[in-house]
Simulated scan of single mutants.
Amino acid sequence: MTTLRTPGPTIGVVGGGQLGRMLAEAASPLGVEVVVLDPTPDCPAAPVVRDQIVADFDDEAGIRELAARADVLTFEIELADQDVLERVSEDSGTPVHPKPSTLRTIHDKLVQKRELEDAGIPVPPFRAVDDADDIRDAIDDYGAPVMLKARTGGYDGRGNVPVESKGDAEEALESVAGPAMVEAFVEFEREVSVIAVKGDDEIATFPLGENIHVDEILRETIVPARSSEAATERAYEVARDVLEVMDGRGVYGIELFQTPDGEILLNEIAPRPHNSGHWTIEGAHSSQFEQHARAVLGWPLGSTELRSPTALANLLADVEENRDAQLRHVDRVLETPGATLHWYGKRQARPGRKMGHVTVSGRDEDAAVEDLLETARELEDAVTFRSQ
């Protein structure tokens, strides 16, 4: 097969889901090509990228092919194999950003928390879990409930299980089905996130977002967050400290708890563009995806300033079992001023699966985020992903 190349660089991405799709959409106007590696044929990113290599995330031969076709490698999913990426990078000379060492830290949530705590980052009390007695001991020390987390593989709330009492410990541990850790439950006023960008010799942060979760799944984000000036500045301080621990260029989604007294505690880190940063496509002068492309290539970063207050609502599949996906009621979004629909191109609707999102941006800098959020919720209710 003849491979066509543009004069610009190519980014090789391990993972071809919605993040890879939106990264390619943002990279194209910069003259940057994107090739993805994903095990699902015709993955969500396929329609907008130069090419897809169909292979598993840890397939060394596939990743070597990706490296041979790219100027830099990155990833949009933590299931990428850090050891394979490291070997391929060393052998091929194709750099990986963020660095595989960062992915190694992030991959295991217990390792992540230990390294961050050692670096002085404020985190909730936590401990490793080997058996149900460890959960019961944590309840004795932290009080109930506690949050049980799978150390690896969890995402979109999967692998996070609240444990309300000692009697629930066995069942909770069985549901995690693998190495686990437990954290003290944080009584927070709000959940917030900093989308931060680590460039070649510069750091940039987007305005603080406020996140609303249901059943541990992110449903909505509003920007700017309804936080005090002091709490907002503290969130930026923690985010900058986190970046000091992370190695390599790129976007980092840094999820935080804000307590009622204004304290900021780290929840989790994603070394890639993050769901809570999707609002930046319409709401900021440059999106998190454009920033990620710039950063991994070592290019100057763009402006992260807010264009206007923005609300985001995720569109989850409204089905009880796996079905072919069908998008409905798009007209409700299209006829709403300031609203934008993003469809991820997923062929199958699964219960609770993120199929797309809607953003609603204000027309001026004084727009009330509460009003924008209400509109986003109405559109979320109107648009559905079902089968006939």
Rank of each mutant, 00 (worst) to 15 (best):
E210Q: 14
E210C: 10
N211L: 07
N211S: 07
I212Q: 11
I212H: 10
H213P: 06
H213F: 12
H213V: 12
V214M: 09
D215F: 10
D215Q: 12
D215L: 11
D215R: 12
D215N: 15
E216K: 06
E216R: 13
I217C: 11
L218P: 00
E220I: 07
E220N: 13
T221S: 14
T221F: 03
I222W: 02
I222D: 09
I222P: 03
V223F: 02
V223N: 00
V223R: 02
P224C: 10
P224R: 03
A225R: 10
A225Q: 07
S227E: 04
S227W: 01
S228Y: 01
S228L: 00
E229F: 02
E229L: 04
T232H: 02
A235F: 04
A235C: 13
E237D: 15
E237G: 01
V238P: 01
A239M: 07
A239L: 06
R240G: 08
R240W: 07
D241L: 06
D241V: 12
D241P: 05
D241F: 04
D241N: 09
D241W: 03
V242P: 04
V242Q: 09
V242D: 06
V242C: 12
V242H: 10
V242G: 05
L243M: 08
L243C: 09
L243K: 11
E244W: 09
M246S: 12
M246Y: 02
M246Q: 12
D247K: 05
D247A: 08
D247L: 08
G248C: 08
R249H: 15
R249T: 13
G250E: 11
G250K: 07
G250F: 06
G250W: 03
G250R: 15
G250D: 08
Y252F: 13
Y252M: 12
G253C: 14
G253F: 04
G253N: 05
I254A: 01
E255W: 10
L256G: 10
F257S: 00
Q258D: 10
T259W: 06
P260I: 09
P260A: 09
D261G: 08
D261R: 14
D261I: 06
E263K: 01
E263P: 01
I264F: 00
L265K: 13
L266H: 05
L266W: 02
N267A: 13
E268R: 14
